[in-house]
Nucleic acid binder design. Structure first.
Lengths: 129, 129
DNA sequence: GATAGACCTTCCAGTCATGGGAAGGTCAAG
DNA sequence: CTTGACCTTCCCATGACTGGAAGGTCTATC
């Protein structure tokens, strides 16, 4: 399986596969005689794992930890849960922050006529708040 | 007023003031004989405006539009409202995305014993979903 | 007037995860 | 044997910053 096929099978772009290898997130792939990367089902599974973790918003650093726990059949689930929970806390904090922004802006927009007149509470707020 | 004082008065770091100037978000500041930037109350107000807009999550590009509308006393509030509403929609979309991630992870973590045993629904999900 | 240290200047590099593209090697089908 | 679809490495760009080096300037004190 070359990199293009591994990409299709895993849903990770070829660019990203090379990048993950370059930063050490995955082990360097085997090479064919002509220096092409060669992937087996095991490597493709790892790439899929990475893609799913990215879809859940984990950083590459967190994924590194999750991967090594995944590879370790003796890992305590406690460690995985801790990473997940800290990530959830992180997500929640960012959600709350953005929610506050959206609420403020919605309120300002609600008070804005939104017509041809220049009076605008949104700009007034940005200028003087 | 030199850049350090303008920074304190506006809450925008000196690095950022220079950056905003370099990308053309604000007009190049006047210079003293010794080539120091010189700011008046008007420029400081613009910087404050920018800081508040950033706090509401507007991108630099959006802030550029807001600034030029702010400078234009004849602007129709419609245009400002449109920018604000499109930004709110953007925020809402990102919030929904992160909320979905957080919900999924919370559910997975809830099902994870989080003890010394290796069985972990979080890793199982990442590996097989 | 010398010196210290707190400013200022420009420029260059790094962050994070990713995409784009150039220059060149390899492979399979026609 | 050519074509075109792969692959390789390399560097560059993104957005919105932060950090630092090298060097000029200002102000206060000795």
């Amino acid at each position: 399986m070359n990199i293009g096929q591994a990409s299709k099978a895993s849903g990770v772009s070829t660019k990203m596969i090379r990048y993950y290898e370059s930063i050490g997130l995955v082990r360097p792939a085997d090479r064919t005689d002509s220096n092409y990367r060669s992937f087996g089902p095991c490597e493709v599974n790892e790439l899929r794992f990475i893609r799913r973790a990215r879809n859940l918003g984990f950083s590459v650093e967190e994924i590194g930890k999750l991967l090594s726990l995944w590879r370790d059949r003796e890992r305590p689930s406690r460690e995985v849960k801790a990473i997940a929970q800290s990530h959830v806390a992180d997500l929640d904090a960012r959600i709350a922050e953005m929610q506050a922004m959206a609420d403020t802006l919605r309120e300002l927009a609600r008070c804005c006529a939104g017509d041809e007149r220049p009076d605008c509470p949104i700009l007034a707020d940005l200028a003087e708040a």
